[in-house]
Design a protein around this nucleic acid. Sequence first.
DNA 1: CAATAGATGCGATCAAATTGCAATAAGCAA
DNA 2: TTGCTTATTGCAATTTGATCGCATCTATTG
Lengths: 141, 141
Amino acid sequence: MRNNIHDCRGELNDVKLRATPARIAIMKYFEREDKPADVQMLIDYLKKQKINADPATIFRIVNTFTEKGLTRQISLNEGKYRYELADKHDHHHLICEACGNIEDMTDCNIDDLEKDIKKKKGFNVKSHSLEFFGICKSCQH
Amino acid sequence: MRNNIHDCRGELNDVKLRATPARIAIMKYFEREDKPADVQMLIDYLKKQKINADPATIFRIVNTFTEKGLTRQISLNEGKYRYELADKHDHHHLICEACGNIEDMTDCNIDDLEKDIKKKKGFNVKSHSLEFFGICKSCQH
DNA sequence: CAATAGATGCGATCAAATTGCAATAAGCAA
DNA sequence: TTGCTTATTGCAATTTGATCGCATCTATTG
């Protein structure tokens, strides 16, 4: 089982982090789920996997992951952070104001906008965050 | 001085809110400053105006303003909320990762993107939030 | 398998935000 | 202007998300 190609040890080794049960499980969560997770969701998920972890540990894990560039921290106007894999580029979030569901939207192009900003303002864009709020398909009945 | 056209009483009356000193000052702040404010900035501003207000009151005021549609609550990944006038449409924020300054960017067009979302996903966009992170002109030396 | 540097658990703590309740003041009618 | 009514505020307590210090534990390496 050691060094199993799907157990996320590779990703953790790459950034010089020890492969602990909680870290492996959290990496797996991010690779399987397409919704950005908050800390409570990760705690619940670990519980189901029979892995006990203190909330403080989860906070430390996602912070370490974010520092190491594995994940990205985002705010969706909820008073808490969510986390998602950092290598998900150019995708944005569709947040339903009725049911709260979060859906990914890929293949967006805002390159032109970023070039515009560079030209007009001299501001050098490193990254951006774009969220759409509205009513999702299934809530429009 | 009563009902002075610039003292914001009109806006407050329109949404059936009493014109208290703190509310008037906060409305004036939003009309003069173009940066979204957090609660601490509002407290500091009120202090300068010799208006004493409890933090809890400021939180209540910005929440009420947001409920009434005067202001909008936004998160810039800082672990706290900021507020800005709700009638500032189609503008986005350029956030410098070096100095923390927040600059407005107007005249952006993402209409096409919203139409795309409606077509591809059936998601009905009501509003969006777009933040650019990078290095501002004066921090590029 | 032992050594050790890194990770975790636990409790305390911090900061942002909210709430209950008594005191206060804005708006309105007389 | 005065007094009434009800919205608003101040204060203290509380909630929630997040962080930290430190002793203990454990993943890695030799």
